[in-house]
């Protein structure tokens, strides 16, 4: 464990909690892409199956359970409890265009052709593009609530910090995982235009609105 990975995990946890509280407190999921949240639940489900096969540490197990629990709770709030506030018309990204290619790629390019490893690879590839429906929805509505931008900032920051974690681990442990690194770079690059808008607008107290 290193400082980049720890702050990355905490940033990820903060994002997940911010979103869950935003929906719960405001009793509304306006502006939130339910499709992205389903993809994240799928990412955690396929990545954390090793909860049943190996114990790494209490921290590792607890965080995985929290991530999975919050992900499904968020999906439940969006599609069940507060479904009346779900903006399905703007959440129109064709997720099959993500899941199918990612599924194919995870079968073609992986470290080991075993079920758990392919599912882990699938979750790594899927996570790198899982935010696209959310970013697409913001581009369609042309704006985002400020709390949603904080959620996205923490979510984007987490994988950016993981990139530093991998640099650290390569330098100090001689360890690297090309699949996780390439997917992590793609994932972080997808946030770049959002990061720019967040820093130039939201941090200056303005509302995040895109030129429609």
């Amino acid at each position: 464990m290193n400082i980049f990975r720890l702050t990355g995990d905490l940033s990820h946890l903060a994002a997940i909690i911010i979103l869950l509280l935003k929906i719960w407190k405001s009793r509304s999921c306006a502006g939130i892409s339910g499709k992205s949240q389903i993809l994240f639940a799928l990412v955690f489900t396929t990545r954390y199956l090793d909860l049943f096969t190996s114990f790494i540490s209490l921290y590792n197990t607890c965080m995985k359970l929290i991530y999975i629990g919050c992900a499904y709770a968020t999906v439940y709030l969006i599609y069940a409890k507060f479904r009346a506030t779900y903006d399905g018309n703007h959440d129109s990204f064709r997720v099959e265009f993500l899941v199918v290619p990612v599924g194919g790629l995870s079968v073609l390019i992986n470290h080991d052709f075993s079920p758990l490893e392919i599912l882990w690879t699938f979750s790594i590839y899927l996570e790198s593009v899982a935010i696209l429906p959310q970013l697409f929805m913001i581009s369609k509505t042309g704006e985002a609530e400020t709390i949603t931008t904080h959620y996205l900032f923490c979510l984007g920051l987490y994988r950016a910090l993981y990139l530093f974690n991998w640099i650290w681990r390569f330098y100090f442990e001689g360890f690297f995982d090309m699949i996780a690194i390439v997917a992590g770079v793609v994932q972080t690059v997808l946030y770049c235009d959002f990061f720019y808008l967040y820093v130039t607008k939201v941090l200056k107290g303005k509302k995040l609105s895109l030129p429609a």
């Binding site: 995990d9 990820h12 190996s54 790494i56 590792n60 965080m63 991530y67 470290h111 360890f175 995982d177």
Partner: peptide, 10 residues
């Protein structure tokens, strides 16, 4: 690269 080593990451 040892992908098993990566499984200690979230």
């Amino acid at each position: 690269p040892d992908s098993q080593g990566n499984k200690d990451e979230l």
